[in-house]
Simulated scan of single mutants.
Amino acid sequence: MHRSAFALMCSAFAASCLTSAVQAADYGLDQGYAVLIVSRERLQVSTQCEIGLYLQDELTARLDQGQSASFNLPPGEVTVRLATVGNKTCQPGINQLDGQRLALKAGQISRYRISQTTAGYKLIPAPPIQ
Results as ranks from 00 to 15, higher is better:
V78K: 03
S110D: 15
I129P: 14
A106K: 13
S115F: 01
V22Y: 04
A106W: 04
A83I: 02
C49Q: 02
R3K: 01
I51S: 01
Y33N: 12
A25P: 07
D26F: 00
T19F: 07
P127H: 05
A34K: 05
G66S: 02
P74C: 02
S70I: 00
Q48F: 00
N95D: 12
A103L: 04
V22S: 10
A25Y: 05
V45G: 06
S39T: 15
G76Q: 00
P74Q: 09
A61L: 04
R40Q: 08
S16W: 02
G52T: 11
N87D: 15
N95V: 00
A5I: 05
R81G: 06
L36W: 02
Q44Y: 02
D57S: 07
E50W: 02
Y54R: 06
V38H: 05
F13G: 14
H2N: 08
N95I: 07
Q48K: 05
S46T: 00
I129F: 08
S110R: 06
V22N: 04
I109D: 15
C49M: 04
K88V: 12
Q56I: 04
A12L: 15
R3A: 09
V85C: 07
I114H: 14
L73V: 12
P128I: 03
V78T: 08
L104P: 15
G86P: 15
Q31H: 11
G28M: 03
E58D: 15
N87C: 00
Q96V: 13
T60K: 13
S4G: 07
R113W: 11
Q91Y: 01
I37S: 14
I94T: 14
Q56Y: 03
L63E: 12
A69K: 04
S70N: 13
V38C: 03
A69H: 10
G52V: 04
A5P: 06
L123T: 12
T79M: 06
N87G: 13
Y27V: 08
Y33A: 01
A103S: 11
I51P: 00
S46G: 14
E50G: 06
A25Q: 13
Q130Y: 09
N87P: 13
E58P: 10
G52Y: 06
P74E: 09
P74M: 01
A7M: 02
P92Q: 06
L53E: 13
T60P: 04
I37Q: 14
A21E: 13
R111A: 13
A21C: 11
A34G: 09
Q31T: 15
V38D: 10
Q91F: 01
I37N: 15
S46H: 06
E58H: 10
V85W: 05
K122F: 09
R101L: 08
V38E: 03
Q23C: 08
Q116F: 07
Q44K: 00
E58A: 07
G99M: 05
I114D: 13
V45F: 01
D98I: 00
I124H: 05
T60E: 15
R40A: 02
S70G: 12
F6G: 00
R113I: 08
D64Y: 10
S70T: 01
I114Y: 08
